[in-house]
Amino acid sequence: MNDALPQAYELSGVAGRMLSGLLTEDDASKAVQSLSYVLKDSIPNSAGAGASIIHPRGRSESTGATDTVVLGADKLQYRFGEGPCLSAWAEQRPIIIQDIREEIRWPTWTAAVADLPLRSVLSAPLTTGRRKIGALKVYSPLPLSFDDTSVFLIERLASPVAVLLRHMRDREAAQRMSEELAEALANRDMIAKAQGILMERMNLNSQEALEVLLARSRGESTPLHDVARDILREATRE
């Protein structure tokens, strides 16, 4: 049996156990950071690991990086718009750099990371279905650190990490939407109550009360819902 298979089974098993618990976490970065340490410890010669999240409009960010070298190398990729993680994401295939000092595919990035303690890079795409989420990566300070076995192992973990990020991001988006909706409804209710107070105080109709609120909002350069909140506070003190 291929020696990589037991490692892959163990890696997938650890990832599966972590996923079952980490899916309840509110912070996707913490979850992916835990899995990044699993990746770092599972692939021989790895000194650091992490994930790059590529948003649909091209904005990139690192999440779950195990150390500052990973973060520094990633930030340079995002700054120059080139590098192994961005290529793994764009081309949807694993990317290996055997020696950064001899690499010619990303000259600006490789020159920028020349002073960092890394020589080899392995990156694999994070994809679920048709959703291209980003890329997973490991770094090594030694040249020629990664091979086909390393690719096999990183791909075994890339799949559950992609699923984790998809679910966490979807849940966080839904939570944000729910919070924003709740806030909007609360603001609407405050404005309606403030209108009612002004209608009673000043013998106004609904439209006239709203115009008073709007005029105060413009005059004080204050959001309308904050003006309404002040009126409600004033009413409770009377």
Rank of each mutant, 00 (worst) to 15 (best):
N2D: 12
A4R: 11
A4Y: 14
L5C: 06
A8V: 12
E10T: 11
S12P: 05
V14Y: 07
V14D: 08
A15W: 06
G16A: 05
G16F: 02
R17W: 05
L19F: 02
L22V: 01
T24P: 00
T24H: 08
T24D: 09
D26L: 11
D26W: 03
Q33S: 13
S34A: 11
S34K: 08
L35V: 08
L35S: 05
D41R: 13
D41N: 13
I43K: 05
S46T: 14
A49Q: 06
A51G: 05
I53K: 01
I54Q: 00
H55R: 15
P56D: 11
S60A: 09
G64S: 05
A65C: 15
T68Y: 03
D74C: 04
Y78R: 00
R79D: 13
G81Q: 09
E82K: 11
C85A: 12
W89R: 03
E91M: 15
E91Y: 12
R93E: 13
I95R: 01
I97T: 00
E102A: 11
I104G: 12
R105E: 07
W106D: 02
W106H: 04
A111D: 09
A114V: 07
A114F: 04
L116G: 04
V121M: 03
V121C: 01
L122M: 13
T128M: 10
T128A: 08
R130H: 04
R130T: 07
R130G: 14
R131Q: 14
G134P: 11
A135I: 08
P141R: 09
P141E: 08
P143H: 08
L144D: 14
D147N: 15
D147K: 00
D148G: 14
T149G: 04
F152H: 10
L153K: 07
L153A: 12
E155N: 14
E155C: 05
R156D: 14
L157W: 07
V161I: 15
A162H: 09
A162P: 13
L164A: 12
L164M: 14
D170S: 15
E172T: 07
A174R: 06
M177Y: 09
E183F: 00
A184N: 10
A186W: 02
L198E: 02
E200W: 02
M202V: 01
N203A: 08
N203M: 06
Q207R: 09
E208K: 05
L213Y: 02
S221P: 01
L232F: 03
L232H: 05
E234I: 09
A235V: 04
T236I: 05
T236P: 02
R237L: 09
E238Y: 06
